[in-house]
Simulated scan of single mutants.
Amino acid sequence: MIEFVIDKLSDGIGVIRPVGRLNMVSAPQLNSAVAGLIDEGTVRLVVDLSGTDFIDSSGLGALISGLKKTRQSGGDLRLASPTAQITAVLELTSLNKVLRPASSVAEAY
């Protein structure tokens, strides 16, 4: 089971924090969260992965889809606080070069 905590910072940045496993079951929920923020006009997003203990290819696909949607809307999507497992997956797939993970939400933008 996964929970998504969504917050908006005072500088207009939206933060999505998936808590649990980001996999084929929960990836559509991430897509919906990203789309919801974009529909509200928030196009600069950070996905805070500090509470995400696992990611699979569907989770990676949802992150790439979110990146594409935000960029098409004139914004960007960045990652913050990836766990060791997620960092390893990002490095193995070279997505760390595209998604630009930062050590914290504050450092992501």
Rank of each mutant, 00 (worst) to 15 (best):
Phe4Gln: 06
Arg44Asp: 06
Leu30Gly: 12
Ile6Thr: 15
Gly74Tyr: 00
Gly61Arg: 08
Met1Pro: 14
Gln85Ile: 09
Glu40Val: 00
Asn23Ala: 13
Ile6Trp: 01
Leu45Gly: 06
Gln29Arg: 14
Gly51Gln: 14
Glu107His: 08
Thr70His: 01
Asp11Gly: 03
Lys69Pro: 02
Leu22Asn: 13
Glu3Asp: 14
Met1His: 14
Ile13Cys: 08
Thr83Ile: 02
Ala106Gln: 15
Leu77Cys: 04
Gly36Ala: 09
Gly59Glu: 14
Gly14Pro: 07
Leu99Lys: 09
Asp39Thr: 11
Val89Arg: 00
Val98Tyr: 01
Arg100Leu: 08
Leu9Val: 02
Asp11Cys: 03
Leu9Glu: 12
Leu90Pro: 04
Leu79Val: 01
Val19Trp: 00
Ala80Pro: 09
Lys97Glu: 14
Thr87Gln: 11
Met1Phe: 08
Leu95Val: 08
Asp11Thr: 04
Val46Gly: 01
Ile86His: 09
Val47Ile: 14
Val19Leu: 11
Thr52Val: 15
Ala106Asp: 15
Glu3Val: 12
Pro101Arg: 03
Ser32Thr: 14
Asp39Tyr: 01
Leu30Ala: 13
Ser73Pro: 00
Ala80Asn: 07
Thr87Asn: 04
Ser57Asn: 15
Tyr109Val: 02
Pro82Ala: 01
Pro18Glu: 06
Asn31Tyr: 00
Gly61Lys: 03
Leu45Thr: 04
Val19Met: 10
Gln85Lys: 09
Asn96Phe: 03
Val98Ala: 04
Ala62Asn: 06
Ala80Thr: 08
Ala27Val: 12
Gly12Lys: 09
Asp56Thr: 15
Ser26Ile: 14
Leu22Pro: 14
Gln29Trp: 03
Thr87Glu: 10
Val98Pro: 01
Ala102Cys: 08
Leu30Ile: 13
Phe4Ser: 05
Leu67Met: 15
Ser26Trp: 12
Arg21Thr: 09
Ile55Phe: 07
Ile2Cys: 11
Leu67Ser: 10
Ser58Phe: 13
Val105Pro: 13
Asp48Ser: 11
Leu67Glu: 08
Asp76Thr: 14
Val34Phe: 01
Arg44Cys: 00
Val19Lys: 12
Arg17Met: 10
Val25Asn: 10
Ala33Glu: 15
Leu22Gln: 13
Thr83Leu: 08
Gly12Phe: 05
Leu9Phe: 01
Gly59Lys: 14
Asp76Ile: 12
Thr70Met: 06
Thr42Gly: 00
Gly20Ser: 10
Leu30Phe: 13
Pro101Cys: 05
Leu9Ile: 02
Leu30His: 11
Leu45Met: 10
Asp11Ala: 05
Arg21Tyr: 07
Ile16Pro: 02
Ile64Thr: 11
Thr52Phe: 12
Gly12Leu: 07
Leu60Asp: 09
Ile16Asp: 01
Tyr109Ala: 03
Asp11Glu: 09
Ile16Ser: 00
Leu45Asn: 09
Ser81Thr: 11
Met1Tyr: 08
Ile64Ala: 13
Gly14Asp: 02
Ala33Tyr: 15
Leu95Ser: 05
Ala27Tyr: 12
Leu67Cys: 12
Pro28Asn: 04
Ala27Cys: 12
Asn96Cys: 02
Ser94Ile: 02
Ala108Gln: 10
Ile6Arg: 11
Gly12Glu: 07
Arg44Ile: 00
